[in-house]
Amino acid sequence: MNMSGMTTAITPTPKVAAMNETKVSARDVQVYYGDKHAIRDVNIEIRSRTVTAFIGPSGCGKSTFLRCINRMNDTIASCRVEGNISIDSENIYDPKVDPVQLRAKVGMVFQKPNPFPKSIFENVAYGPRIHGLAAKKSDLDDIVASALQKAGLWNEVKDRLDSPGTGLSGGQQQRLCIARAVAVSPEVILMDEPCSALDPIATAKVEELIHELRENFTIVIVTHSMQQAARVSQRTAMFHLGNLVEENDTDKMFTNPDDQRTQDYIMGRFG
């Protein structure tokens, strides 16, 4: 009988859902930009601690749908979302939900690296600071260090945390943005074509990072690169003309998709 083993057993399990459990669930989601019906009847289950890739031709609505998950579409005046999206069975479009609080739970990484024009440290520390995650300066230092480590940037920047974040290379900037998102300990991280502005080497690093982040986070990534979807994701969803065409295991999707349109898109017949 091992006492330490006992202790571990009774420690409450951290609030990280087991893999493959549903984290985000969308029911009959419709999105309108003014009169334009941009997303039609999307139903999808996004699994916890899984990388889900959204693929599809330009303008198919994959980014729009991604931005529904942390209500970034609220910032667009003409945009209207109907239906139900829930995270851990809580409807995020409930009138009682404050989108600001939601976004602390659902982080986002954008297409173009967009670090604040401040120091590397300030970039990562901003989120924890506004959410009051650090009581002391030393706590903040720890959070920043750990976020940079998780983003695989620590060794490159630990000696120059005070230099501007905008002075880093494109790939480093994007990893800085990932660190910034990670620093507020979100449960879901949304990535909108995070590698589209990066060269292949930087892309490889970010992809490796996504792979590691899967251990702790639910990741949804929009990508135009079929190879990238195949490399990083376990689940893939194919969008076309605002519809969710098919959602499946990535392996199946790229070898034997159910839908003809997916087959055509993957084979490069359109899009």
Binding site: M72, Q101, A104, F110, F116, P117, H131, R180, A181, V184
Partner: peptide, 11 residues
């Protein structure tokens, strides 16, 4: 993109 970045971390 700067506004998005700030909103994205929950500002």
């Amino acid at each position: 993109s700067i506004r998005d970045a700030a909103l994205g971390v929950g500002a």
